[in-house]
Amino acid sequence: MTREQATKKLKALKALAEKGVGGEKEGARQLYEKLKSKYGISEEELQEKPQEQPEKPFDGDALFQAATTATMLKAEQEECDACPGHYGQEECMGCGTYENIQKLCLQLETLSRKRRGKRQ
């Protein structure tokens, strides 16, 4: 048995030792300790490491949506910059440009989450 195979088996045994019933629990624990010692594998090596999901490349439609949204956001921000008010001030709350900026930022965030495979 290779070290990688032993590590995989140890993880399964550990789960059985923690969640098993009656004698299988004790048997799994004993075999777990025996194999861990035999192969010199530490508890740290057996800890599950969270796997990051790789970012998905944008498909054509999503890329078009992101580019369009970013272009529109830039235009709205330029319009807002020309205004004597500043982002988030009281007079901005009723402004259509300010509302558009907020909506466009949310759209970009949604597209980004989809790309990363996360739920909205």
Rank of each mutant, 00 (worst) to 15 (best):
K38F: 08
K19P: 01
K11M: 14
C95W: 07
T2D: 15
Q51H: 15
S42L: 04
L13S: 01
Q5N: 15
I41P: 02
A62L: 09
K38C: 02
E44S: 08
T68F: 09
Q51Y: 14
Q5R: 13
C92M: 07
L16W: 02
K74Y: 06
L35K: 02
E4M: 01
K34F: 11
D81N: 10
Q30P: 00
K49N: 12
E18M: 14
G20H: 00
Q5I: 08
K14T: 05
E33H: 11
K36M: 10
K38M: 08
E79G: 06
Y98G: 01
C92P: 00
Q65L: 11
F58V: 03
R29V: 00
L35A: 04
A6N: 05
Q89R: 08
E24H: 12
D59V: 04
A6I: 13
K19R: 04
G23E: 15
C83W: 10
Q5G: 09
C95T: 03
A75S: 14
G40Q: 09
A62I: 01
E91R: 15
D81A: 10
H86T: 12
P84E: 14
K74A: 07
L46Q: 12
M93E: 15
K14C: 05
T69C: 15
Q65S: 10
Q47G: 10
L13V: 03
G60F: 09
K34V: 10
T68I: 06
T7N: 08
A66T: 10
L31E: 09
T97P: 03
L13I: 06
C95A: 07
E33N: 12
G40Y: 06
K34C: 07
P84F: 10
L46Y: 04
L31W: 00
G40C: 07
P84L: 09
G20I: 00
G23C: 12
Q53K: 14
F58N: 02
K14Q: 13
A17R: 03
A62D: 12
A62R: 08
G20V: 00
M93H: 15
K34P: 03
D59T: 08
K11L: 11
Q77Y: 03
L46G: 05
G23A: 12
K38L: 12
T2N: 15
G94C: 04
Q5P: 00
G60P: 07
C95R: 07
T68E: 13
G23Y: 06
Q30L: 09
E18T: 11
P84K: 14
T69P: 04
G20W: 00
G22R: 10
K14L: 13
P57V: 11
R3A: 05
K36F: 05
G96C: 07
S42I: 03
K56T: 15
D59P: 02
T71Y: 12
